[in-house]
Amino acid sequence: MEERVLERKGLVVRHSLLERIEHWAVALSGLVLVATGFFELPVARRYFITEIPGLGWSGDYITSLGIHYAASAVFIAACLFHLVHHGLLRHDGMVPRRGDLRASVEVIRTFFGKGEEPPFDKYLPEQRLAWAGMAVIIALLILSGLVKTWKNLVDPQMSPALVLTATWVHNGAFLLFILAFAAHIGALVLKPNRPMVRSIFTGTVRLDYARKRHPLWMSRLEGESLGPEKGTKGGAGDTAGGHGRTGQGASGP
């Protein structure tokens, strides 16, 4: 499913099914990783988490580790798929652009009633920055996690300096990941952003919202739909857009 306008339904397709699967694979496995990573600290028994019905296993480090590994396999595969698949297809809509930092500050000010929002492309500048930030955090988590897994499985006598580095990179990135996740959820709570949330579940946003807030994206989408190589899709009244430069490449809302 590509980005396209569903005129009759008053909707715009923002995320394909594949992108939503990517997002939820990363998000759900990431949440499991946060929980089981937390349970690898000696906290579950101390803080009575083991006594919560269904979480009795949280005090068993080996069980938590097994679940952590299973979630890691999904997480790593999904992240690499996301990066390579969209990279190869040049879906760079979420890659930060020059001026995004300054633009983000301006946009954030508007959330607090200062100034007016500029016209947006498919993604807000802070979404592009957040994607890049999360990509760096995830890269650190994956690389350090792979080193730790190698140590656990293959080389228990790995260089102490390497083990210590991997451990603290993993622990530090773990904290940053939690903060980034909190910021991600926090951004969705802001009223102007709420209409975007439905897309990560259904794939679509309201057409009137998209035209009003994302005119750069819509002008390209609707402009392309009128081009000679783009026709209708999904029935009369629906117009399809291609994978424009800023059209795809991420699964954030």
Binding site: Y69, A73, I76, A77, F81, L146
Partner: peptide, 12 residues
């Protein structure tokens, strides 16, 4: 499962 983790980049 640890082996699955080490293989997961290739799967992705």
């Amino acid at each position: 499962l640890a082996k699955a983790v080490l293989l997961s980049p290739l799967v992705g």
